Amino acid sequence: MTRSACPLSGWTVSLDLWGTLITHGDRQAASAWRITEFGRVLDAYGHHLAPEELSKTVRRTREEAAHQQRTTVAQPDVEAQVGAVLDELAIDRDAADLMKLLITVHTHAVLRACPQPIPGAVAALAAIKAAGGRLVLTSNTLATPSDVHRILLSDLGLLDCFDDVLFSGDLGVAKPRPEVFAAVAERAESPLDRVIHVGDDQLTDIDGAQGAGCHAVHYNPHRRPARPLVPDFADHAELPALLVSLCTAPAAELISRSASHE
């Protein structure tokens, strides 16, 4: 196959997961299941809590962990997240069996949300791959560690679409830290300026990628105001052609797009 038939050859296309490739699903169902199962486990260990108290504590600690990740770019440890719940409830976190059960509940709750691929995403991945692009999944994690993400991706038929998968929980840092995007390039044995990251979040995906020296494409399904000169798309059917257009553009044009962010 000729290079013209593989216009993305030599390029690494990094894609965000949540909100870009898959939906968040029924978050309320996942939250309700987590809280109910937390209650059952704690009750079995002799900690009888009012459902309202447990619900408030679990929700608050999750919100605080998410805020910490987004504002400090630190990667919260799953055990620390569960430990924070126990600390607020004044329950000893040193009981190993209790912690193990609660961590399992905490990390698997997302499966109850039943997330699904965003329409057109699977076809877009196949088209990018057919055009010669190296596909990398680059996702922040919070309550859901990489092993559970892999279960979910496998169930959705997405895991085998990627040449590599990177999760912030494994890296120890989260987007928009430049180390995340540097890891994408390093593992692909590619320079940063041959990496295009696709995502829906202005801070973690767009600013993060451009700040690290990569190119960025914004998944913008609602056509909200976007960063100047950052290409965006609202329908995944648009993405393969958009990437080909960017990757075959003159180098000076790509450089000017990146420089506009600095």
Results as ranks from 00 to 15, higher is better:
L159R: 07
H48T: 11
D77I: 10
G132N: 03
V41M: 08
H108C: 09
L42A: 06
D155S: 13
A80Q: 07
T204E: 11
I255H: 09
R134N: 06
S154E: 13
H261P: 04
I118M: 04
F233M: 05
V180N: 01
C214E: 01
R227A: 15
C247F: 05
I128A: 03
L17K: 02
I206S: 02
Q81D: 03
P117V: 09
C6Y: 08
A126P: 04
V217S: 03
Q202K: 13
S139T: 15
S146E: 05
P250K: 07
D170L: 09
L98K: 00
A96G: 02
D26K: 11
G213W: 04
L142S: 01
I255T: 14
R223N: 15
L192W: 02
G133Q: 01
G10D: 03
L17T: 07
D200S: 13
L135C: 05
S154G: 15
H24P: 09
D163I: 13
D207G: 09
A252N: 04
V148L: 04
Q81S: 10
D232R: 05
D94T: 15
S154M: 07
L98W: 00
T20A: 09
L89F: 04
V217F: 05
A124H: 00
D232Y: 13
H261D: 06
A183F: 04
A249D: 06
L243Y: 02
P7T: 11
E238T: 09
Q210Y: 08
D205W: 04
L246E: 01
T107M: 09
R150K: 14
A96C: 05
L153T: 01
D94G: 12
P191V: 14
P221T: 10
L171I: 14
R34E: 11
L159A: 14
P117D: 02
P240M: 06
I118R: 00
L246I: 14
T12M: 07
D200Q: 15
Q75Y: 01
R187I: 11
N220W: 09
R134H: 10
R27I: 15
P119N: 05
N140M: 12
K175M: 11
V85D: 00
P191A: 10
D164G: 05
F38G: 05
S14P: 07
L166E: 01
N220A: 15
H222R: 15
S146D: 11
T23Q: 06
S245D: 13
K56R: 14
T104F: 08
H48V: 14
D163V: 11
N140A: 09
R70H: 08
A113W: 00
T20E: 06
S258R: 15
D92N: 13
A65K: 01
P231F: 10
T57E: 08
E52I: 10
E253H: 14
T107Q: 12
Y45K: 08
L192Q: 02
I35A: 10
F38T: 08
H108P: 02
D193F: 14
R60F: 13
D26V: 14
L54T: 05
P115C: 12
A124S: 12
D160P: 03
A95G: 11
A252H: 10
I128D: 00
A143V: 11
G199N: 06
A216T: 04
A50C: 10
A113H: 01
